[in-house]
Amino acid sequence: MTVFWILLTGSLVASCCGILGAFLVLRKMAMIGDAISHSVMPGIVIAFLLSGSRDSMLMLFAAMICGLLAVFLIQTFQQSGIQSDASIGVVFTALFALGVLLVSLFARQVHLDQDAILYGEIAYVHWNVWEVNGVNLGPKAVWLLGVTFIVIVAVIGLFYKQFKHLRFRSGAGRRVRHTGRTLSLLADGSRVYGDCQFIRKRRGHSCCRLAYYPGGHCLSAHRSVRPYDCAQCVSGHFQHFPGVRRGGRS
């Protein structure tokens, strides 16, 4: 059962990332995932300093706010005439530097060391279970990730056509500009939400890369978007399994 929970956690992370990654790669915004995963660091540290625990909703919110702030700043700088990759680089390095600085100033002696955020560890998820009236309902991580997965699938499923338009024909998308703008905000939102969840579970760095890793893999193999999404989930899963065998760190 232990191995099952760990595998399920990793698979859920991979499929959430994979679904969103398809759109990121098609929109030529692959590095945004990287930027968000770095930028949430100050949010995590501040929330930890405020609440004192590593498992709070506050941490999730703070990370989300930081991620949204990063996306907002990147877009602002882009619109003011800086190249898109340069603005990504400026924003995420600044926020990440702030996070590292905060950790080494205030959180040096405590549980939240740099390694825990940088590598992530899912080998112990089965110990942190959710109990209601003494009934064991399974690991918290699986519940949270499951909800995230359902939210992502629901948003993508409901607005699939609009997302597709936005990705492939920006001309057609521009005609429905007002919806387009809300949609891209929604996409950013769900992306940030997803990213934050993954950070909580697998703490950052290498994990958020899953978002475009499977995306890149499948782009050459599949032409239409729908099988592309599914294949991506599968390839995301396969990528994860060797990691578990190596002892949870992938």
Binding site: A30, S206, R209, Y213, L219
Partner: peptide
């Protein structure tokens, strides 16, 4: 040799090497 764009290729190489 593939249809992957420059930024996604950078992401793949970056994460592969860093991993």
């Amino acid at each position: 040799h593939s249809r992957i764009k420059h930024d996604a290729a950078m992401g793949i190489v970056l994460s592969g090497f860093f991993g």
